[in-house]
Amino acid sequence: MPFTLATWNINSVRLRQGIVAQLMRDEAPDVLCLQECKSPVDKIPVEVFEALGYTHMVARGQKGYNGVAIFSKIPMVEAGSHDFAQLDHARHIAGRLDNGVTIHNFYVPAGGDVPDREVNVKFGQKLDYLTDMRDWARADKPGKAILVGDLNIAPREDDVWNHKQLLKVVSHTPIEVEHMAEVQDAGQWVDITRQDIPEGNLYSWWSYRSPNWDEADKGRRLDHIWATPDISNAGHSSRVLRHVRAWEKPSDHAPVFATFDL
């Protein structure tokens, strides 16, 4: 059963339900994973998405902050969620498809502005969250699984517009990249996007603070699609829909796509 999957930090699913619906109409991914929904589950405009064929949803939400949801056109049931680092945040939800594939949708904490846990609690929370993700994968080795989401880390030099300038900027610091690598190693997760697009600058986020974001192109690849080794060879057709960043009242993230022949 081939299916196409997309991940997108939407920065409020209620405020931006129009462009979510536009993506559903234009691109029609079978599964759409959203982060930073900023909505209680019962306030998500599910009727809008159901009308477009997305009749299955699993979600965790909270008012005004965080929140993750998976919408699917193909049968899907909830497969649980975890409160990583005991933050009591809605940052993870999992759904299982009929073919046995489990999709984990994550919204890793951004980490604040100062990359020092001694003076910035949020940075410490981010590192603790990643450590907990690592231990979770070590304790229960994932199989036939896909991990997606806004992981808020751009790990490679060509995942940021300027490696040297961003080494001390949250999202690209060595300690964050190291923590991310430990998560990836613990689950033997394969970076599907970079498996498909192994070379060259590739970004999925551009700051709202840059009005000429497209021309300046000071981006970072914060949004990821990973898969376990048993299904990683089935992943292909990866792409970042950069043009979506220019839609009316956009998110500062662009959707990331991949297709799996399973």
Rank of each mutant, 00 (worst) to 15 (best):
I70R: 05
Q22A: 12
A137Y: 12
W189N: 03
L166P: 12
D158H: 10
W189E: 06
R25S: 14
D140A: 15
I197W: 06
P198M: 04
E157I: 10
G64S: 02
A59W: 05
D128R: 09
G61Q: 05
L167A: 08
G61E: 02
R14S: 00
A69M: 08
H92I: 01
V169Q: 09
L262W: 14
V256E: 05
I146W: 09
H172V: 00
V190N: 08
E27F: 13
V77R: 15
R60C: 08
L222R: 01
F49P: 01
I70H: 02
V160L: 10
W189C: 03
N99F: 09
I74G: 10
V20W: 09
M180W: 13
G80F: 08
I175A: 03
R209T: 03
K141H: 14
R60D: 11
Q165G: 12
A85S: 12
G124S: 02
E47V: 02
V13Y: 06
W161D: 09
I19Q: 15
P229N: 01
S204L: 02
D158Y: 09
R156N: 15
A110L: 11
K126I: 01
R60V: 13
A246Q: 15
N105E: 04
L97V: 10
I19Y: 08
P174S: 00
S232F: 09
Q35P: 13
S204Q: 04
V119C: 07
I70P: 00
S210E: 13
T7I: 08
D132N: 09
L34H: 11
R239V: 13
E215M: 10
S39F: 08
M180Y: 15
P40Q: 11
L52K: 06
T228A: 03
K144Y: 13
K218D: 05
